[in-house]
């Protein structure tokens, strides 16, 4: 079969807001998908030149190196406070945080809740992989009951370590947030839905509406000790039972 190069249409390309740098995520990790979706959103909304990334401490710690956007690296858990500072002094900037469950829902609980409660006009992308990825697979506040990690070798015991925290639901109790949703990426349909949700969350900010949070259920093949395919089934069969998908607040 001969191919006429003139007639080829580019249907897939690297988002323009990304640099050539390689992500440092493990192969098969959903982190890469979400990061890419965020980049695509920035392209689609045409906001690359006024977006500021607030990178967490976690597997996405060097996120600012992958984007053609300004970026800042926050202390562990403090991303929402840092974002508040940036947005308050320059409301024209589009400011988003990108945080893991340890960063956002453990050490950063106070900052995360209070930024939402103040209705800061920022976008929070929350990566819920039910584990501490970067530090080698310890228990996270979102770890499922019974799930084994390096710091709960016999499985999470609810008696001693409580239950998986449903952060999106907590945030949804507050009056200020404009858009709060939980998404997943285990199949093509979900990926499309998550992309739409992330775009909507950024759009809320662009339109000056206020705080939005997109929680994304993701995998960690490395520390779950699963293949990417196994991890997708685990998300679909087990994880969504503890963390129901869908919009929780939509005041858009």
């Amino acid at each position: 079969m001969s191919v006429n190069a003139d007639k080829m249409v580019r249907v897939f390309e690297r988002p323009r807001s990304l640099t050539d740098a390689q992500f440092s995520y493990c192969p098969g990790c959903h982190h890469g998908l979400v990061t890419r979706i965020v980049a695509q959103t920035i392209d689609e909304l045409g906001i690359q030149d006024r977006t500021v990334i607030v990178a967490p401490v976690g597997c996405a710690v060097t996120m600012y190196e992958w984007f053609r956007c300004d970026g800042i690296q926050a202390a562990h858990g403090r991303a929402c406070a840092v974002a508040t500072g940036i947005k308050r002094v320059n409301p024209n900037l589009i400011v988003f945080t990108y945080q893991g469950d340890g960063d956002l829902a453990a050490i950063g609980t106070a900052e995360s809740i209070h930024a939402a409660n103040r209705g800061e006009n920022i976008t929070v992308v929350f990566i819920n992989n039910q584990i501490y990825g970067m530090t080698g697979g310890q228990m996270a506040p979102t770890t499922l009951v019974g799930q084994r990690t390096t710091s709960c070798p016999d499985g999470r015991n609810a008696q001693l370590a409580g239950y998986p925290i449903r952060f999106a639901e907590m945030i949804a109790q507050l009056d200020a947030p404009v858009y709060v949703t939980r998404q997943a990426l285990y199949d093509q349909k979900r990926i499309m839905a998550a992309s739409r949700a992330i775009k909507k969350a950024f759009q809320c900010q662009v339109e000056g509406k206020g705080y939005s949070l997109v929680e994304v259920l993701t995998n960690c093949p490395t520390n779950w000790r699963m293949s990417p395919a196994q991890s997708n089934s685990h998300l679909m069969d087990e994880v969504v039972r503890a963390f129901p998908l869908g919009d929780l607040v939509d005041r858009d």
Binding site: G102, A106, I107, Y132, M134, T135, G136, Q138, T150, S151, C152, P153
Partner: peptide, 16 residues
């Protein structure tokens, strides 16, 4: 404790 490299081994040891 709280996880942080390079002392996770202490936390993980104590967990067990």
């Amino acid at each position: 404790g709280y996880p942080i490299t390079p002392q996770n081994e202490i936390l993980e040891y104590m967990a067990a």
